[in-house]
């Protein structure tokens, strides 16, 4: 069996909801049945074979070739298998996924990994706003799993995030960790304004101090050696990311906030 390859024929004029194209939803379907699936697109539906050239039959491993930022909800609620995306992709990549692996070779749209519960998403590019966030009206964003972004993330990374890891090798936009309930966001690069705005709990681990300083509503708790950091860094060793190669450290400057709320969140800035 070879991977199921869905090659986009032309760049679509309307956004297309690809929720139906996950290993879960395609399990036991023949290529003909896959071809006949109707995907929502605007106020109509389009058949899969009208949008994609279809090759292969292994629905556990789906590859989107010639992908477009107009393909939304790729990997939505998936619980097993692998999805590879050869280029840019639209919004809600891996939303609510519970397990499995998604590899995107390009940039992703807004709400990547929103309300993700488990599994891993690796983005070899930039991610849009609200990575690991919650949909409008929802209380919790990401509650498990790991998101790796080799590039930068947009605004409000980890909005309402409750559990899991977001590892950003580039820079994070404004309001990173905003309204975060728990979990961990680590950033190798720079962070934008309003870091941890409305943060309740959780950890923002920064490898470089923010140029603009830590937000005013965070208090400095001093420099500390924290035993959990080597343990956490060791857990990154098996991941395909720059975080796997970090020299272990446990010495950080600890800030807690957002003190306008319960103030149990923490920003840890590596020392040295």
């Amino acid at each position: 069996m070879s991977s199921l390859i869905l090659k986009l024929k032309t760049s679509p004029s309307q956004r297309i909801d690809c929720s139906a194209l996950t290993p879960d939803r395609l399990e036991d379907k023949t290529p003909a049945e896959v071809a006949a699936i109707e995907l929502p697109s605007g106020n109509r539906t389009v058949r899969v074979d009208s949008v994609f050239d279809i090759r292969g039959d292994n629905t556990n491993h789906i590859i989107f070739e010639n992908s477009s930022e107009k393909l939304d909800f790729v990997g939505n609620q998936m619980s097993f298998g692998t999805i590879e995306v050869s280029g840019n992709i639209g919004a809600y990549l891996g939303a609510m996924m519970t397990n499995g692996f998604i590899l995107a070779a390009g940039n992703t749209g807004a709400y990547t990994a929103c309300e993700m519960k488990g599994g891993q998403i690796k983005i070899n590019g930039n991610a849009g706003d609200f990575v690991g966030g919650a949909r409008v009206g929802q209380k919790n964003g990401m509650t498990g799993g790991i998101v790796i972004v080799t590039g930068n993330t947009g605004s409000r990374t980890g909005d309402h995030m409750r559990r899991g890891y977001i590892l950003i090798e580039g820079n994070a936009g404004d309001y990173c960790g905003g309204r975060m309930v728990s979990g961990t966001i680590a950033v190798l690069g720079k962070v934008g304004a309003h870091l941890g705005y409305g943060m309740k709990r959780g950890t923002l681990l920064l490898l470089q101090a923010p140029k603009q300083g830590v937000s005013a509503n965070f208090n400095d708790c001093g420099a500390h050696t924290l035993a959990f950091l080597p343990l956490m860094l060791a857990s990154f060793r098996n991941l395909d990311t720059k975080f796997a190669n970090l020299t272990t450290f446990s010495r950080v400057q600890r800030y807690t906030g957002d003190l306008a709320g319960i103030g149990m969140g923490e920003v840890l800035v590596k020392i040295g």
């Binding site: 498990g144 924290l226 035993a227 959990f228 343990l231 956490m232 149990m264």
Partner: peptide
């Protein structure tokens, strides 16, 4: 109430603030 939970590799750890730093 100042304790912090961390899930690492699927296992839960507790960071408990104590006078010499943190008890993990």
């Amino acid at each position: 109430g100042f304790q912090i939970s961390k899930m690492i590799d699927g296992k839960r750890y507790w960071r408990i603030p104590v006078m010499d730093g943190e008890f993990l």
